[in-house]
Protein backbone atom coordinates (compact mmCIF):
# COMPACT_ATOMS: atom_id res chain seq x y z
CA UNK A 1 0.00 0.00 0.00
CA UNK A 2 2.67 2.48 1.09
CA UNK A 3 4.76 1.63 -1.96
CA UNK A 4 1.83 2.04 -4.31
CA UNK A 5 1.01 5.47 -2.91
CA UNK A 6 4.64 6.53 -3.16
CA UNK A 7 4.71 5.29 -6.74
CA UNK A 8 1.61 7.32 -7.65
CA UNK A 9 2.84 10.49 -5.93
CA UNK A 10 6.18 10.18 -7.73
CA UNK A 11 4.37 9.60 -11.01
CA UNK A 12 2.31 12.77 -10.58
CA UNK A 13 5.48 14.62 -9.67
CA UNK A 14 7.03 13.49 -12.98
CA UNK A 15 3.99 14.76 -14.88
CA UNK A 16 4.65 18.08 -13.16
CA UNK A 17 8.25 17.91 -14.47
CA UNK A 18 6.89 17.79 -17.99
CA UNK A 19 4.43 20.60 -17.41
CA UNK A 20 7.19 22.88 -16.07
CA UNK A 21 9.15 22.33 -19.28
CA UNK A 22 6.03 23.04 -21.34
CA UNK A 23 5.51 26.28 -19.42
CA UNK A 24 9.09 27.33 -20.11
CA UNK A 25 8.82 26.59 -23.84
CA UNK A 26 5.42 28.27 -24.10
CA UNK A 27 6.68 31.52 -22.60
CA UNK A 28 9.81 31.40 -24.77
CA UNK A 29 7.91 30.76 -27.99
CA UNK A 30 5.44 33.51 -27.08
CA UNK A 31 8.19 36.08 -26.53
CA UNK A 32 10.24 35.04 -29.57
CA UNK A 33 7.10 35.05 -31.69
CA UNK A 34 6.28 38.55 -30.57
CA UNK A 35 9.75 39.87 -31.41
CA UNK A 36 10.66 37.91 -34.50
CA UNK A 37 7.43 37.58 -36.44
CA UNK A 38 5.15 40.00 -34.60
CA UNK A 39 2.89 37.08 -33.66
CA UNK A 40 2.51 36.25 -29.96
CA UNK A 41 1.50 32.65 -29.24
CA UNK A 42 -2.25 32.41 -28.87
CA UNK A 43 -3.17 31.00 -25.48
CA UNK A 44 0.29 31.30 -23.93
CA UNK A 45 -1.19 33.24 -21.02
CA UNK A 46 -3.63 30.51 -20.08
CA UNK A 47 -1.22 27.63 -20.77
CA UNK A 48 1.23 29.20 -18.31
CA UNK A 49 -1.56 29.93 -15.85
CA UNK A 50 -3.14 26.48 -15.85
CA UNK A 51 0.31 24.89 -16.15
CA UNK A 52 1.28 26.45 -12.85
CA UNK A 53 -1.89 25.19 -11.16
CA UNK A 54 -1.22 21.65 -12.33
CA UNK A 55 2.51 21.63 -11.47
CA UNK A 56 1.65 22.77 -7.96
CA UNK A 57 -1.25 20.35 -7.35
CA UNK A 58 0.78 17.49 -8.84
CA UNK A 59 3.85 18.20 -6.67
CA UNK A 60 2.14 18.79 -3.31
CA UNK A 61 1.95 15.12 -2.36
CA UNK A 62 5.55 14.22 -3.20
CA UNK A 63 6.81 17.35 -1.44
CA UNK A 64 4.93 16.18 1.65
CA UNK A 65 6.38 12.70 1.30
CA UNK A 66 9.94 14.09 1.35
CA UNK A 67 8.91 16.30 4.33
CA UNK A 68 9.66 19.60 2.65
CA UNK A 69 6.52 21.51 3.55
CA UNK A 70 7.78 24.03 6.09
CA UNK A 71 7.17 23.26 9.75
CA UNK A 72 8.39 24.95 12.89
CA UNK A 73 9.79 22.25 15.14
CA UNK A 74 11.96 23.90 17.78
CA UNK A 75 9.21 23.69 20.39
CA UNK A 76 7.95 20.19 19.65
CA UNK A 77 11.54 18.90 19.55
CA UNK A 78 11.70 19.38 23.31
CA UNK A 79 8.71 17.10 23.96
CA UNK A 80 9.17 13.40 24.83
CA UNK A 81 9.29 11.11 21.77
CA UNK A 82 5.90 9.50 22.45
CA UNK A 83 4.21 12.90 22.53
CA UNK A 84 5.98 13.88 19.33
CA UNK A 85 4.78 10.68 17.72
CA UNK A 86 1.17 11.31 18.74
CA UNK A 87 1.40 14.86 17.40
CA UNK A 88 2.73 13.63 14.10
CA UNK A 89 -0.04 11.06 13.77
CA UNK A 90 -2.76 13.59 14.57
CA UNK A 91 -1.30 16.17 12.20
CA UNK A 92 -1.06 13.62 9.38
CA UNK A 93 -4.68 12.64 9.89
CA UNK A 94 -5.73 16.32 9.94
CA UNK A 95 -3.87 16.93 6.67
CA UNK A 96 -5.53 13.89 5.10
CA UNK A 97 -8.95 15.12 6.18
CA UNK A 98 -8.32 18.69 5.04
CA UNK A 99 -7.15 17.54 1.61
CA UNK A 100 -10.24 15.35 1.40
CA UNK A 101 -12.44 18.37 2.05
CA UNK A 102 -10.56 20.48 -0.50
CA UNK A 103 -10.93 17.68 -3.04
CA UNK A 104 -14.67 17.50 -2.41
CA UNK A 105 -15.01 21.27 -2.80
CA UNK A 106 -12.94 21.26 -6.00
CA UNK A 107 -15.43 18.69 -7.28
CA UNK A 108 -18.32 20.98 -6.34
CA UNK A 109 -16.62 23.83 -8.21
CA UNK A 110 -15.91 21.59 -11.20
CA UNK A 111 -19.60 20.71 -11.41
CA UNK A 112 -20.63 24.36 -11.32
CA UNK A 113 -18.12 25.21 -14.05
CA UNK A 114 -19.33 22.31 -16.15
CA UNK A 115 -22.89 23.53 -15.80
CA UNK A 116 -22.10 27.16 -16.57
CA UNK A 117 -19.83 26.31 -19.55
CA UNK A 118 -16.88 28.30 -18.18
CA UNK A 119 -13.92 28.06 -20.54
CA UNK A 120 -10.43 29.58 -20.78
CA UNK A 121 -10.25 32.89 -22.63
CA UNK A 122 -8.27 32.24 -25.80
CA UNK A 123 -8.29 28.47 -26.33
CA UNK A 124 -11.76 27.80 -24.98
CA UNK A 125 -10.74 24.77 -22.89
CA UNK A 126 -13.43 23.91 -20.30
CA UNK A 127 -12.28 25.10 -16.88
CA UNK A 128 -13.73 22.11 -14.99
CA UNK A 129 -11.10 19.82 -16.56
CA UNK A 130 -8.35 21.62 -14.65
CA UNK A 131 -10.31 21.38 -11.41
CA UNK A 132 -10.67 17.64 -11.86
CA UNK A 133 -6.94 17.31 -12.46
CA UNK A 134 -6.30 19.37 -9.34
CA UNK A 135 -8.54 16.97 -7.42
CA UNK A 136 -6.20 14.12 -8.33
CA UNK A 137 -3.35 16.05 -6.68
CA UNK A 138 -5.31 16.57 -3.45
CA UNK A 139 -6.44 12.91 -3.29
CA UNK A 140 -2.87 11.69 -3.57
CA UNK A 141 -1.74 14.26 -0.97
CA UNK A 142 -4.46 12.97 1.38
CA UNK A 143 -3.38 9.37 0.78
CA UNK A 144 0.29 10.15 1.40
CA UNK A 145 -0.62 11.81 4.70
CA UNK A 146 -2.93 8.95 5.68
CA UNK A 147 -0.38 6.25 4.90
CA UNK A 148 2.18 8.27 6.84
CA UNK A 149 -0.11 8.22 9.88
CA UNK A 150 -0.61 4.44 9.56
CA UNK A 151 3.13 3.88 9.31
CA UNK A 152 3.71 5.97 12.42
CA UNK A 153 1.07 4.06 14.37
CA UNK A 154 2.69 0.75 13.47
CA UNK A 155 6.20 1.95 14.24
CA UNK A 156 7.48 0.99 17.71
CA UNK A 157 10.16 3.57 18.37
CA UNK A 158 10.09 7.18 17.30
CA UNK A 159 12.88 9.52 16.51
CA UNK A 160 12.64 12.84 14.79
CA UNK A 161 13.51 12.52 11.13
CA UNK A 162 12.95 15.99 9.84
Amino acid sequence: MEKKILFISKGLHYVAHLILLIMMFTVTVDVLGRFLINRPLLGSYEITQMGLALTVFFSLAYTHYVKEHITIDFVVEKFPPTVQKIFDIVISLVIAALMGVICWQLWESAQRFLKSNAVTGDLGIPVYIFYIMAMVGTVVFALVAFVNALALIQKEDYHNES
Binding site: L52, A53, F57, I102, Q105
Partner: peptide
Protein backbone atom coordinates in the same frame (compact mmCIF):
# COMPACT_ATOMS: atom_id res chain seq x y z
CA UNK B 1 -13.93 29.51 -0.59
CA UNK B 2 -11.77 26.44 -0.02
CA UNK B 3 -12.92 24.95 -3.33
CA UNK B 4 -12.25 28.03 -5.45
CA UNK B 5 -9.54 30.13 -3.81
CA UNK B 6 -7.05 27.27 -3.42
CA UNK B 7 -7.22 26.71 -7.17
CA UNK B 8 -7.45 30.37 -8.16
CA UNK B 9 -4.36 31.41 -6.25
CA UNK B 10 -2.17 28.90 -8.09
CA UNK B 11 -3.73 29.29 -11.54
CA UNK B 12 -1.91 32.57 -11.98
CA UNK B 13 0.18 33.79 -14.88
CA UNK B 14 2.06 36.25 -12.68
CA UNK B 15 2.98 33.63 -10.09
CA UNK B 16 4.50 31.40 -12.77
Amino acid sequence: VLGTSTFNVVSSYNLS
